[in-house]
Design a protein around this nucleic acid. Sequence first.
DNA 1: GACAATATTAAGTAGCTACATAATAATGAT
DNA 2: ATCATTATTATGTAGCTACTTAATATTGTC
Lengths: 233, 233
Amino acid sequence: MIPKPTNSWIEIRDAIHANILNKTYAAGDKLPRDQDLAQMLGCARSTVQRAMQDLSDRGLVERRRKGGTRIPQDPVTRATLEIPIIRKEVEQKGAVHGYQLINAEMLETPRNIMAGFGLPAPITALRVQALHLADQQPYLLEDRWINIQTVPGVTQIDFARENANEWLLRHKPYDKCDMRFYAIKAGKAEADLLAANLGDALFVIDRTTWINQNPITTVKTIAAPGYQLKTGS
Amino acid sequence: MIPKPTNSWIEIRDAIHANILNKTYAAGDKLPRDQDLAQMLGCARSTVQRAMQDLSDRGLVERRRKGGTRIPQDPVTRATLEIPIIRKEVEQKGAVHGYQLINAEMLETPRNIMAGFGLPAPITALRVQALHLADQQPYLLEDRWINIQTVPGVTQIDFARENANEWLLRHKPYDKCDMRFYAIKAGKAEADLLAANLGDALFVIDRTTWINQNPITTVKTIAAPGYQLKTGS
DNA sequence: GACAATATTAAGTAGCTACATAATAATGAT
DNA sequence: ATCATTATTATGTAGCTACTTAATATTGTC
């Protein structure tokens, strides 16, 4: 008995992918139309469509109506980062998560925060600074501004007990998120809090979230020395 | 005339997404089955399926056969990074790209490179060190090891003229890519080459690529001070 | 030749049926 | 009660038809 070709769209995708890898289809080339590929590979057009959609999502092919499918001239490396809540990240390393509130107060937003939020004038916002620990050791420093207009209930929360990272993600879903990654030199404040040396190179993630165009929060997370962010692909 | 509901799967997706955002479906909740949702929203099950597939890809819902669709307890922030070839990146900033080869030689792989490649014993590999410029200013320092077993033709290439980043991406597609991001303090070598000060915090990207389980290349790219990596989502 | 109007084309979408598969739930034997 | 077996179920996939849409080609006019 024939073991049934089980033409999953993944096999079709991999078959086309293999032809890209082995240069049957090289940069700039135009691929056959879906219908023809379907016939060549012995499957339905909808299966090729699904395979192509995936390849297109990964940036391996470019598709245009009427224009057909082509291999892009300049390949782009696409990486997906998964950033869990900090407690989970610590626990996944097999460590015990700890949390300390450093400061929480209402303040006028400085210019750089206004810029991140896309606001023309300063507003009063809740600034929360806190330290995350892994096995009692400093792990991440969190410097956060929360828009109290978008998150009204937030002023009632005791961030000495609740961790702002987790509280916001659980209670205030977002529909847009901007992130940026860079390196800074540890100043006195960061060095003290993170048990680092003055001048150490620290990895920083800036993140701003919105809901319906309204800024929710912007946070600067400074990692302790040695931190590495890895892709999961 | 009714303007026709044009039930695109995107509208269905957004309708479900809206119900997640407004807490109709909260963390831990189980959603109705696709068939029921389809009836509720007035579309076919296949349309709900497509919408759900997308929400699932974004980590907004978790789907399991028989188990149904649920909102995950701990939301994960998923960010997609697009890393173009360096020349493109420089040009996109409106600057002129320049390239200088620093050194290219055949060497035994040290332990850390072996580890990245997943090799038990050292091999002889091609090490290429080069500097990328933006408007004559140092932009990125590239320290690369190329596996000459996987990329045999590479020994013939004159990397004083051709830029390794581009040559490899164009001539040696990969099917697996690991990346990691971190910060380092500029040593004397980096400071000199990148026109930085000794001890400056520098942003680093490590990248290793494979084809059919065989390592192709591993590269450490050190950015000049001020570099930021941003998400495009 | 230059440009606007029109036709054609290949991907995209919606909806359908039928079946596969992996979990979970129910059942039965010990 | 415990464990293995079997049934059930909701999602996943393959394939089909029909129609839409955005580009690109073609044609026609000046």
